[in-house]
Computed example of a mutant assay.
Amino acid sequence: MGPAWVAQLPVARFHGVGPVTAAKMKRLGTETGADLKAQSIEFLTRHFGSSADWYHGIARGNDDRPVNPSRERKSSGSETTFDRDLTDPAGIEAGVLKMADDVAAWCAERRQYGRTVTVKAKFADFRQVTRSRTQPHTVRDQDAIRATSIDLIRTLYPLEQGVRLVGVTVSNFEPSKARMPLFGDAGP
């Protein structure tokens, strides 16, 4: 799946390709990973200077940035793509509630709780919108995540077109409560 996935990926989704570079690539006829891979290093150097090697590599799935599996997680999210565009609020909200339940379960299992709940919706034309709400305290309750998610998705009604995807994310996690030694004593 790796090479095929990279090939179909819009260049704007590649790490290191910002909006200005993506627009320039589009003007040059480079819109997907496959388009980027088809460009020679000479072409990339002429148009993108010192970034040419990076773009050449990422189009081929090469990324030597170190992976840090121990990094602290900053959010938990879940999303689903519907098999058809939904316009019925009940169907959309059922999807949102399922995603909220997935996120709440993850948070409870790992005892990681955040203050911000975000809902994402992608429309039939692939336009994407997000709505978020930050609470004064961490959200630890599944019902609170569900209620906030429903409130947020309802801000999109009435719909101008169908919804293809919905997602729910909890972020702004409280800091880890690692035990701090007293008076320099690292022992129990």
Rank of each mutant, 00 (worst) to 15 (best):
A4E: 15
P10S: 02
A12M: 03
A12P: 05
F14R: 05
H15G: 07
G16C: 06
V17F: 00
T21D: 11
K24W: 06
M25I: 06
M25H: 06
L28W: 11
G29A: 00
T30E: 09
A34K: 12
A38E: 10
S40V: 03
I41A: 14
E42I: 03
F43G: 08
L44C: 08
L44P: 06
T45V: 02
F48D: 12
F48K: 01
S50D: 14
A52L: 07
I58W: 09
R60L: 03
R60A: 14
P66H: 04
P69W: 01
P69V: 01
S70C: 11
E72R: 08
S75A: 15
S75K: 03
G77P: 08
E79Y: 12
E79H: 14
F82S: 09
D83W: 09
D88T: 05
P89H: 03
P89Q: 02
E93D: 11
E93P: 10
G95C: 06
V96K: 02
M99A: 14
A105H: 11
W106V: 10
A108E: 15
R111D: 15
R115D: 10
T116F: 10
T118A: 13
V119D: 00
K122M: 14
A124H: 10
D125R: 03
Q135D: 13
T138G: 02
V139T: 13
Q142A: 15
D143G: 13
I150W: 00
I153C: 00
I153G: 02
V166G: 10
F173G: 03
E174L: 09
P175C: 03
K177I: 04
L182N: 07
